[in-house]
Computed example of a mutant assay.
Amino acid sequence: MRVTIEGGVADVRLNRPDKRNALDPAMFEALVLTGTELAADTSLRAVVLSGEGPDFCAGLDFGSFRAMASGERLSARAELPEPTGPARATGQRAVHVWTELPVPVIAAIRGNALGGGLQVALGADIRIVAPDAVLSVLEVQWGLVPDMTGTQVLPELVGRDVAKELAFTGRRVSGTEAARLGLATRVADDPLAEALQTARTIAGMNPHAVRGTKRLIEMAGRVDLAEGLAAEQREIGALIGSPNQVEAVTARFERRAPQFAD
């Protein structure tokens, strides 16, 4: 992984372009450890996740499929601290760490996002894709199921029937169709530039409001309505009159850029 941070925006890139950013044990480790490290950075405002070279991520490294013939899972070789959240397996953690990141994560997708590569993108809050990008829930074509949180996340995005159709067939869809289905958020000719611009916009907002919004929306549909509404009131109660909220109001009235504290 390659990470640069500027103005509170982390530009995070899968960095095996010669292998189309395929997932091997080292890449699984890097995804989990990078996400965990970024989660601890209170100065961070947003993350853009992309791949070096022409592809986002082409899925599992071919060595992993060869190892499966003898019943071995190479991802299990990743050396990671014990999991603490709901994602227990290495592949699940490599995706869910981005969902658990307290700040918004935007995936910029061009080229191929296949199988495990698509599931990594599903860990992001927003997916911006090139019109000619190729996305596929490819696992069935290797005789497998999507096991990196995909079976749980896909129905929420595209509906249960579309999720089944994509997972049963491994059909490849363009970026344009992905956006129509809900698999991607929107299309852009230059998804990385668009993602970075969106991240900079987010970075200009009250960081505590943004983090609170992510927490609340992640709860939606996963807790009962009373709990969700109560959480909403706790978040707004903590924000009203707080220094950053006062600064947001003051800056708007004074027609200047706000200066928020971490």
Rank of each mutant, 00 (worst) to 15 (best):
T4W: 10
G8Y: 14
V12L: 15
P17I: 00
M27E: 10
L31Q: 00
E37Y: 03
A40S: 14
T42M: 09
P54Q: 01
G59D: 07
L60T: 02
D61I: 00
F62Q: 06
R66V: 10
S70I: 01
E72M: 08
L74Q: 02
S75N: 13
P86A: 15
H96C: 01
V97M: 10
V105Q: 01
V105E: 00
I109E: 00
R110Y: 01
R110L: 02
A113P: 01
G116M: 10
G116V: 05
G116C: 08
A124R: 06
V129I: 04
P131W: 13
E139R: 02
G143M: 11
L144R: 15
Q152W: 14
E156V: 12
G170A: 01
R171C: 06
R171P: 03
G175C: 05
T176V: 03
A188L: 05
E194M: 07
P207L: 07
G212Q: 09
G212V: 08
K214M: 04
R215P: 03
I217F: 15
R222N: 09
D224C: 09
L225V: 14
A231M: 09
A238D: 15
N244G: 07
Q245A: 10
E247V: 06
V249T: 07
A251H: 12
E254S: 13
A257T: 15
A257N: 14
